[in-house]
Design a protein around this nucleic acid. Structure first.
Lengths: 114, 114
DNA sequence: CAAATATACCTAAGAAAATTATGTATTGTG
DNA sequence: CACAATACATAATTTTCTTAGGTATATTTG
C-alpha cells in the first residue's frame, strides 16, 4: 500500500481511465478492479470514491444508470463523449508528469520517452 | 504547468531528492531549480514550500544554517543521514507507484521495469 | 443456521495539504 | 526610480482525502 499522499490527486485520472476501457462500471466494481490490478497496493476508499463519482456526474463527464441485481442496487457509470476527451487529457498529462518527475528524481529515462 | 492536483503529495519527494543530490540548498533556490529542470512545468509555490521545509526540519530530516549574503539572509537546508534513507524510500516508493499507475492507465510498460 | 464476511450504496466531521493572498526587506535592471 | 527578482515568512481559505459512521442484502463458514 502506497502512502496516501502519493496517490492524492490521481483518483479522477484512475476512474476515467478505467471507464474509458470498460465502458460501464459501478462503484464497488471500481474499488475491486483497482485492488486487483495493483495487487492491493492501491485501495480506493469509499469516502473518496463516491463523492468523486458524484462530482464527475455533476460535471457531465459521467452518466449513471441504476440497475437492480437481485434485491440490491448497482449504480453503473458510463463516460460521456466529452468525458472521454477529459480522460484522454488526464492520462496524457499524467504521462508527461511522470516523465518530468523522472528528471527531477534522477530516475533513469526509459525507452520511448522523448 | 501541470494541474495542481497531480503534483499534490509529491512535494516532499521532490525536495528530498534534490537535497540528496545537492547537499545544501535554500528555499528560493529549490523553486528555481525545479522550474528550470522541468521547463516551467512544475513551479513550487512558497506557501507550500516553506511550511514543508519547516516540517521536515522539525522531523529531523533536514537541518538548517542561516547565512548572510550581502544584507539578505539565506536559510540553507541540508539533509541528515536519517533523512537520506527517508529520501531513498520516498523515491523508491514513487518509482513503484508510477509503475503501478502505468498498469492502471494502460500506458506502455518501459524497458527495465520488472 | 447463526455469525461473519462480502457486496453495494451513501454522507458527514475532521485532518491534511495545497492555493491564494499577504507582508517584510534587499538587490538588480531598464 | 519604479519594477522585477531575490529571499524569507504566515494566515485564511479551499480542496481532497481519511475516518467513522449508517443502511441493507447476499454469501460463506464454523
Amino acid at each position: 500500500m502506497y502512502s496516501s499522499e502519493l496517490i492524492k490527486g490521481t483518483l479522477k485520472t484512475i476512474i476515467l481511465a478505467l471507464l474509458t476501457d470498460e465502458k460501464k462500471m459501478y462503484g464497488y466494481e471500481i474499488t475491486q478492479k483497482v485492488k486487483n490490478l495493483t495487487g492491493g497496493k492501491i485501495q480506493l476508499t469509499e469516502g473518496a470514491l463516491y463523492p468523486t463519482l458524484h462530482a464527475l456526474e455533476a460535471q457531465g463527464i459521467l452518466t449513471t444508470e441504476v440497475v437492480n441485481v437481485g434485491n440490491r442496487l448497482r449504480k453503473y457509470y458510463t463516460i460521456t463523449p466529452s468525458g472521454k476527451s477529459v480522460a484522454q487529457e488526464k492520462v496524457t498529462e499524467f504521462s508527461e508528469f511522470i516523465a518530468t518527475m523522472r528528471i527531477l528524481l534522477d530516475l533513469q529515462p526509459r525507452a520511448g520517452e522523448a
